[in-house]
Design a protein around this nucleic acid. Sequence first.
DNA 1: TTGTATGCGTTATCAT
DNA 2: ATGATAACGCATACAA
Lengths: 345, 345
Amino acid sequence: MNTPRRATIADVAQAAGVSKATVSRFFNHRERLLSDDIAARVEAAIAQLGYTPSPMAQALSRGRSRLIGLIVADITNPYSVAVLRGAEKACQDAGYLVMLFNMGNETGREREAIDALAGYQVDGFILNTLGRGAGVVDAVATHGKPAVLVDRRHAGMTADFVSLDNPGAMARICAHLLDNGWRELLYVTEPQQGVSTRRERAAAFGACLAAHPTALRGEVFESAEGEDEALVQALRALRRRAGRSRRAAVVAGNAVITLRVAQAMNRLGWQFGQELGFLGFDDPEWASLIGPGLSTLAQPTDEIGRTAAGCLIERLHGLEGPAREMLLPGRLQVRGSSAAPIKAA
Amino acid sequence: MNTPRRATIADVAQAAGVSKATVSRFFNHRERLLSDDIAARVEAAIAQLGYTPSPMAQALSRGRSRLIGLIVADITNPYSVAVLRGAEKACQDAGYLVMLFNMGNETGREREAIDALAGYQVDGFILNTLGRGAGVVDAVATHGKPAVLVDRRHAGMTADFVSLDNPGAMARICAHLLDNGWRELLYVTEPQQGVSTRRERAAAFGACLAAHPTALRGEVFESAEGEDEALVQALRALRRRAGRSRRAAVVAGNAVITLRVAQAMNRLGWQFGQELGFLGFDDPEWASLIGPGLSTLAQPTDEIGRTAAGCLIERLHGLEGPAREMLLPGRLQVRGSSAAPIKAA
DNA sequence: TTGTATGCGTTATCAT
DNA sequence: ATGATAACGCATACAA
């Protein structure tokens, strides 16, 4: 069973009794210049040999590869995966293949990732990375390939940007909590540390408080990985602050925090919506299963991914113009954890 | 800001005052044949120009690409993602890049996926697909590239296979339930329909029952997507069968089913470990949060991914020999949902 | 409309 | 030990 070598363009040319150029034209400039007679012969030869052009060779020759490089900060993150899913589908539908690079949360490998992908002549990048590594901006610039940023901006980088409308989402969250009688809020976020999304959301939370200076009171708490005890204490403090007269709720800044807060509540033996209100982020699959149900702000992850891929592909098709910013609206999924107190009948 | 074209091997050759062949040798056959003098000059030129060989061109020339094609049936599936994660890391560590193809659960696109990836000269495949599409076997064979199967076998295909040790896992599950006094079991699985894992697990469940003909009684129930009502009825029937004297528990066949059963229990308003025992699969993040905690059989997903990648890379390095079968043990994570009844003190 | 020749960036086979 | 030169599979400028 020796290797029945893939048919090449030369094989087809020979079988059809034409030149390689003609075969190439059959694929690239068909209608424009090719006689029916020859076209038919080429087509037959192609069918007979089961010929498919080698994308590798095409890439080398054209300088374009129909490959899109997707760099993800951490593929463990369900958000990243959800986006990846949407993007991958859109790319496939447009005839592009995705090359995946997972950084495993190791900041600083960004440059390495970009270079590796660029080596394979990817036509463009979709970046969902931390945005801390300095190299990214000029790494992308160097290769002169278009890129689109997902969820996280990169300082000084001018590229299409796709993300949740954070201010809008946070406004909706706060309005909902306000409506339902929650007065003392705690916004829990991962360390903000130069990650644009986290800063934006925290800022938006602050803005909401400022908009209701008398009704709402709130603080921001940064919860780092592994420091579970600190979070538990923060929740205790929150309840203490609220006292008997005000109802207290916690708002999670992303899916990781949502889980972490849920675990902390579990440790405390507190019920959502009872001892503490809770509004999570990213609508995990278990939101409806736990206690009275977890209210969440669901991101349109699939659409974010599709939009990002769409933006990039438009650029690849030649779209010029300034960097765009696509902010997609979130959806408030109300469940029991943020419900208004039951009025005495 | 015009494109500062990537340096090529020719540029380096010129800068160093040598031939392209020499530069190529510097990378590929360094020690064997190269004078110190020349090597130094080449090295300097490379550093100065920041030259990196083009993987594309290398692939074209060598016929190998240092690319690994990873085909996933459904990237929505957390199991697939977890495996992907492990595999991706192992590939990266070994200097390979992963090209991802998600089939979005569309059986029949398998052949298309393989061909697309093969076009890019991937050196080998990691397949986590349904194994129903007929094309796969000979698609892979055609391209003459090694492949490793993850989690799902393909009929008639002889390739390395990596998966959970299903019989072992199921035996452990049943033994645990037996020890804790659960007597009437229901095994819930997605439609078995030619998917090897599902069949294997269901068979293993049957074997466990057979091993304890007097103590244990059980049935298998296939739960299809969207048919939630049927599942609810099945749980009701299970309890009825058990009656007052025997305690009944449900065993989930995978993560999807685990979630589905949890939702059904939620609808029924039943407590895990109370009305019904429950043993889930795949240890989702919410397992510890829900009710008394969900007992699960956790798969070593990361290790499965790493092992799969490792197998493939060994083959790429020339390992011959018959197809191997690597069955990794699962870990029983005991929580409240399968606890023994509380003895009256 | 079609064929010829050259280039894309490497590696490998020859010579030297 | 080093340098020409021919592949690798395709696209394209130029000729015809």
